[in-house]
Design a protein around this nucleic acid. Structure first.
Length: 464
RNA sequence: GGCCCGUUCGUCUAGUGGCCUAGGACACCACCCUCUCAAGGUGGCGGCACGGGUUCGAAUCCCGUACGGGCUACCA
């Protein structure tokens, strides 16, 4: 394990954001590729958003996408709230060194001062009015950072050099009047204490990077490698958010997306795998480079995700497919039947949740009849006749193989001058209740002679 | 409003001055295959935001404009 240390710093919100998952994956790929460490720090300083079980949820979500707490490269989770004293101490250190000062002005005071200075109501920015008042600690007082003059240049591994004019950065709050440290401070102090060397995070943080860089320097440390990743946006080109979009990783999992498909798709958001875009994790982990990360936002495209998922479902072995599908399957069913049909089910699924719909008729005591399909199919007299004739032919069949079932039906169809495509319809509806489904004769073979004949007789009786 | 970032087919992208008549994938359309539906195969549709430079030559470099987004809290 070398000195390269990466981190993700999610705030506990009750779910794990797909954007956070993408950031985690990029960090994880690099940490492992470089032989470094990936640390997880839960940023729970906002007391309103803090539930112990949410941390567990984050760890579980990470494990699902392959970031296992048991991996030697994994470290944590740490809770930011455990380090509050360090944050406060750092703020005091900054005050002592003259990099920060106390201020007793409230938001209303600042607003009033703006108006008194002839500025418009709602004017923004704090004028550094308490800078030289030499206030000491006291109730209702915050600690603000004294922003020096000049410019701050952020060296970003993906965006190059980004320059910020310090004059445009107000003396920001480090510690609230209630004594609670603010995000920028806590984030930097923790990163320093955890010896973080690489900060890869979403682009939304680029704007407060100069503030953080000033803190690193004022605290006497050398800044980490910065890398701001392109935002994940929706069709409106806005940052995907809980309010507007489906962002919970857990929800995709619950809907039947495979972890491998999700991981592969997430990796393509802001980076392009070498060669085919469908790639095993090990390959992407080896190929990932910060310099290849894209600059423009990535649209989180559900259709593309679905395509990836379908692709991954088709790659599964029958047994792996069965295991993955279990949560969506009935409590009791004939696994050998499912396994026999698996190669026919897989190409018909976009998510694992689609699996039961394709083959449930094989396991149910009675097929669920789609009334429209039934009515439409048997409105044709010929179809009723075909059903009867097929039943008779099947009763007389000496074996029960897909090939024989197919041949027998071809004979019946030919008598009506119909191709198989048309002739199979009434039997499919009678047995499965639907007009669409897996290959019929293979399904009948799996369903078995007795059950098939029983359903055909039931259908015949229902038509009388 | 200010600051910052970005801009190649509908979407994700390849492309780092000549290999570009701009390649691939998803989506869409057509055809083929086919027992339905899928899957698969073949083909098609479709793009360098705009305007100026630089250069023998620009999607690639520079400037401007437009558009989109992010940030602008005693949220994280």
């Amino acid at each position: 394990m070398n000195d390269a240390r990466f981190r993700i710093a999610p705030s506990p919100t009750g779910y794990f954001h797909v954007g956070g998952a993408r950031t985690a994956l990029f960090n994880w790929a690099l940490a492992r590729q470089l032989g470094g460490t990936f640390v997880v720090r839960i940023e729970d300083t906002d007391a309103d958003r803090n539930r112990p079980e949410w941390t567990e949820g984050i760890i579980e979500a990470l494990a699902w996408i392959g970031i296992k707490a048991s991996d030697p490269h994994f470290e944590g989770p740490y809770l930011q709230s455990d380090y509050t004293q360090q944050h406060v101490d750092a703020a005091q250190q900054l005050v002592d060194a003259g990099h920060a000062y106390y201020c007793d002005m409230t938001t209303a005071d600042i607003e009033a001062r703006h108006i008194a200075n002839g500025k418009a109501e709602g004017s923004q920015g704090y004028g550094g009015w308490s800078r030289d008042r030499n206030l000491g600690p006291g109730s209702g007082r915050v600690i603000r950072f004294r922003v020096a003059e000049g410019v701050t240049i952020v060296h970003d591994e993906v965006r190059g050099e980004v320059e910020f004019d310090n004059a445009l950065i107000e003396d920001f709050v480090l510690v609230r009047s209630n004594g609670a440290p603010v995000f920028v401070l806590a984030n930097v102090v923790d990163d320093m204490h955890m010896r973080i060397t690489h900060v890869l995070r979403a682009e939304e943080h680029l704007s407060n990077t100069p503030k953080q860089q000033m803190l690193w320097e004022a605290l006497g440390a050398s800044v980490p490698v910065w890398a701001h990743l392109p935002l994940l946006v929706n069709e409106q080109r806005k940052k995907i958010s809980k309010r507007r979009d489906k962002v919970a990783l857990e929800q995709y999992r619950a809907e039947g997306y495979l972890a491998d498909a999700m991981v592969n798709y997430l990796m393509t958001l802001g980076w392009t795998p070498k060669g085919d875009e469908i790639q095993p994790w090990a390959q992407m982990e080896a190929d990932f480079r910060l310099e290849d990360v894209h600059l423009s936002p990535a649209f989180f495209d559900l259709k593309k995700l679905a395509a990836f998922n379908g692709e991954y479902i088709r790659m599964l072995s029958p047994h792996a497919f069965l295991d993955a599908s279990r949560p969506w399957l009935p409590d009791h069913f004939d696994e050998s039947k499912f396994l026999a049909m698996a190669p026919h089910i897989q190409p018909r699924c976009v998510t694992l949740a689609d699996a039961p719909g394709v083959v449930d008729f094989l396991f149910l005591a009675e097929p669920v009849i789609d009334r429209d399909a039934w009515t439409k199919t048997f409105a044709a007299e010929a179809n009723v006749a075909i059903l009867r004739e097929t039943l008779a032919a099947y009763e007389a069949l000496s074996d029960w193989q897909a090939e024989s079932l197919k041949s027998a039906m071809e004979v019946v169809g030919a008598a009506h001058d119909l191709k198989l495509g048309k002739a199979q319809a009434p039997v499919r509806v009678a047995v499965s209740g639907r007009t669409v489904g897996p290959p019929l004769f293979e399904a009948l073979e799996v369903l078995g002679r007795d059950e098939t004949l029983r359903r055909l007789r039931n259908a015949e009786a229902a038509l009388d």
